[in-house]
Every structure is written in structure tokens, then in C-alpha cells.
Nucleic acid binder design. Structure first.
Lengths: 233, 233
DNA sequence: TAAGTTTCAATAGTGTTACTATCATTATCG
DNA sequence: CGATAATGATAGTAACACTATTGAAACTTA
């Protein structure tokens, strides 16, 4: 037992098994590691990925640059770790949230909801602020793959988290319409689209639409999916 | 008359009026300026925005770093210039391509086509390779707004080009269904979505779908738009 | 043709970032 | 208690993103 942060037992003994390409040393394995994760979410949410540096992070969590490099090769890999964590967490919540449902339409609607809505919950996992992490995913996650290293990193499984979520929800689409030709395109469009729309709503509102009394982003994508797969009431 | 590059008269005397926030000195106003634009498209397409530096550009077009800084404040602004150019060019083509059509459905289908298909044409404008520029837009355009400076740059009109394209096509959507609640969301989803899907098709294929004998990206988004606005044959 | 003005090249220099390396110190664990 | 792993402290390097200054062409206008 560590004497500093309490070793919080994850719900149901779950442990998110993040691919190793993202880190050099598992940040879950030490107190410093967890502080790096906590602190980087805090700082990146505050100043954004571009201004985020290992120097600033080391100051804010009171350690040294050199120590950070023992856990993560560079800040890009750290972002990859954080976003991957988010996808695995989302997958976990999806599987859990859909477990008891039998009606495929209901399953799909709930899944789309979970993919597109804002994250309110907090403290599922001790040292991670999911709300802040979600904002980071909205603002920065495209930057994980829009790089020269995509192909190489992809080979090593860096994007497995995102792919699994897409595959999971696509399979529900196929339950509802087995002749649908574009399930993956549809779902990856929804996920990335919802992120961009949240960004637009905050910064470039003329690229979105506001509707009183509802979350237009969730509503729009739910409607869009059902219409696209030709769902009849 | 300049003695170096021939002063190519733009089709119909059109001149794309790119907002000034993107540049310090109009690159259309000199030979060096045009070489910067040509060379940056070439180089950025080749090595990507992240590895692209003013030093490398100055070497490749045989000028100095300092000279580049006279035209563009930094490489971010240069990317902004290039993508804005692309949006204005697209808007121009859209207006032109839809001019003779009266049936709103036909107009919408053609517009979606133009928004989502690959750019084959070339040499509309003398010193710009539109095919390479389109690849840059696909790979890098999200980076123009996913920054800390969005709000500030937006105030100064930096994203007018994108907004105008979205507004233009949204208005066609509204012609077809005046009660539709999410025209801007729909169209900005299509544009950004199509870019991402092209990227996925090349690098992360399990996030897309392939269909023999058609361009699945154009087909998917055309279908998606028509279904979403509830178009009945 | 001379003078002014714009344009660009050349060079140098600064602060910051993204690392890498080394060695001392402190926990942890068998 | 001794070994080993984890961290801290410090230093240093190469590249990058600029800024500043000066001087030479070239082009413009009187």
C-alpha cells in the first residue's frame, strides 16, 4: 500500500488496458505516474495542447522534465495516452450502459447519446477528471492522428481505442439494417462531427445551429443516424 | 509586365479576395509572393504542416527566412492563407457550377458532390496546384482553428471563407426543407466529415467503408444529406 | 538622369522548445 | 542490510521561431 494517494480500487476491478506504444513506463504503476496524468489533464485543459510543454508540466506538478520523459516519449505520446484512455473508458461505459437493453433501436439511440453528449459525470476513476479530459478530446484529439506518424503508430495499435468504439456502435447499426453500406463511416462521422460541433458552438457559432430547450448536437446526430439507416418507426 | 512568370489573367477577371489577417503583404502582389505560395503548397504537401518550417521553405524556393516573414507572420498564418484561398476558390466554383440549375434537389446534390469529391482539376490559377492544395486542406485544415487563437482570429474574419461555403450550401438545404432545424450543422459535418473520411481511407481504413464501383465518401454524404432533410423522391 | 522608394538578400542574434546524458539521492524490497 | 529501482538535480545540444539591421538592386517618378 502506498502511503500517499489512496490506492482506489477501480469499479468492478476494471483496469483500462492502454496500449504500450503510448507510454514508456505505465503511469498507473506509480504515484508520480498518476500525478503526471492528473496534472497533464489539468494543464492541457487550461492552456491547450500547443502551449503545453513538459517544462510547464514539470513545474505544475513539482517534478523535473527528465522524470516526465521516463514515462512518455514526448508530449504527442502523452496526448495519445490521454485520448486512448478516454476511448477505453467510453467503450467500457458503452458496454455497460447497453448491457441490459434488447431493442436494437433503443440501443443505438442510447449509444449515439453517449457518443455525442457532454460528459457530466466525474470521479469514475480516482485521479482522472473525465469532464476536463472530454474537453481535451474535443479540442485536441484530431491532432493525435493528423500527423506524419499515423501509419507507423497505427501499426503499433495506437488507435485501437477509437476503432473499438467505432466497431462497437457500427455493429448495432448493422443489427438494425444489415444491408447498410456505410456503418463505420456513419459512426466515425458522428463521433468526430459531434466533437467539432461542440467546438464550433463555442468558437464559430455560425457553423452550427442552436435550438432552444434541447441539446442540438445530440438531437441532430440521433436524427441523422436514424434517417440515414432508413429507420421507420 | 513582369519579365519572369507570365502574368496569367485569371478566368473572367476573378481575383480571390483573401482576408488580410492571413498575410502581412499580399503574396499576389509580387513574384516572390507567388513563389512563396507555390513553394509552400509543394513543400507542405510533401512533408506535412508539422515538419514544415520557414527555413526549409526558404531553402526550397531559394530565398531567405527573413523575406518570408515579410509576407506571413508565421507558418500558422500561411496555412490560414492557403486554406482560405481554397474556400474562396471552392465558393467560386460552387456559385458557378450551380448557376444554371433551377431544381433545388439537383443543386444540392451537385453541391454535396463538389464538397466531398476529390479535386482532379488543375491549373485554374497559374501558380496554384489545386490538387495538392486539396490534400493539404484534408490533412491540415482542422489545425487552422483548433488553436488558442481561434476567437481572436475569428473576430478578424479569418474563417470567413469556410463560413461562406457553409452558408451557401445551407441555404440550398433550406430551399428544400424550410423547417429543417440544423442546416449549418449538417453542412459543416459533411465538409469536415468528408475530409476526415478521406484521411481515414488512406491511413485508418477500419474507420471507413469501401464500396466497389463508386466513391463511397461522396455517395455516403449525398445519401446522408437527402435522408436527413427528409427528401422524398 | 538623378533621387526616392520599394524589394529583397545577407547576416547575426535571441529566447524557447524538445529533447539527451550524467550523476547524486532516496525509496523499496527481498 | 544491501541491492536495485525511481526520482531529482543539473547541464547541455540542436532545432525552431522569430527580430533586427544593413546594404544592394530594381523600379518609379520628377
Amino acid at each position: 500500500m502506498s502511503k500517499t494517494t489512496p490506492t482506489f480500487q477501480l469499479p468492478l476491478g476494471v483496469r483500462l488496458d492502454i496500449p504500450q506504444i503510448t507510454y514508456l513506463k505505465d503511469p498507473e504503476s506509480s504515484d508520480l505516474g498518476r500525478r503526471i496524468v492528473t496534472g497533464s489533464i489539468e494543464l492541457m485543459d487550461e492552456i491547450g495542447f500547443d502551449d503545453f510543454t513538459f517544462k510547464r508540466l514539470s513545474n505544475s506538478i513539482d517534478t523535473t522534465e527528465a522524470s516526465l520523459y521516463r514515462y512518455f516519449e514526448n508530449k504527442h505520446k502523452l496526448l495519445l495516452y490521454l485520448t486512448t484512455w478516454y476511448w477505453y473508458w467510453l467503450e467500457y461505459r458503452l458496454v455497460f450502459g447497453l448491457a441490459n437493453l434488447t431493442d436494437p433501436k433503443e440501443k443505438l439511440v442510447k449509444a449515439i447519446q453517449m457518443l455525442t453528449e457532454e460528459v457530466q459525470q466525474d470521479s469514475y476513476f480516482a485521479h482522472i477528471d473525465e469532464t476536463k479530459l472530454h474537453r481535451i478530446v474535443i479540442n485536441e484529439s484530431s491532432k493525435t492522428y493528423l500527423t506524419r506518424m499515423v501509419d507507423e503508430e497505427n501499426k503499433m495499435g495506437a488507435f485501437r481505442g477509437f476503432k473499438r468504439v467505432v466497431a462497437l456502435v457500427s455493429s448495432i447499426v448493422m443489427e438494425l439494417n444489415k444491408n447498410f453500406k456505410y456503418p463505420h463511416m456513419l459512426i466515425s462521422t458522428v463521433i468526430e462531427g459531434a466533437h467539432h460541433q461542440r467546438f464550433f458552438a463555442e468558437h464559430l457559432p455560425s457553423l452550427t445551429d442552436k435550438v432552444r430547450g434541447e441539446d442540438p448536437i445530440s438531437s441532430f446526430y440521433t436524427m441523422m443516424v436514424l434517417q440515414s439507416i432508413g429507420y421507420k418507426k
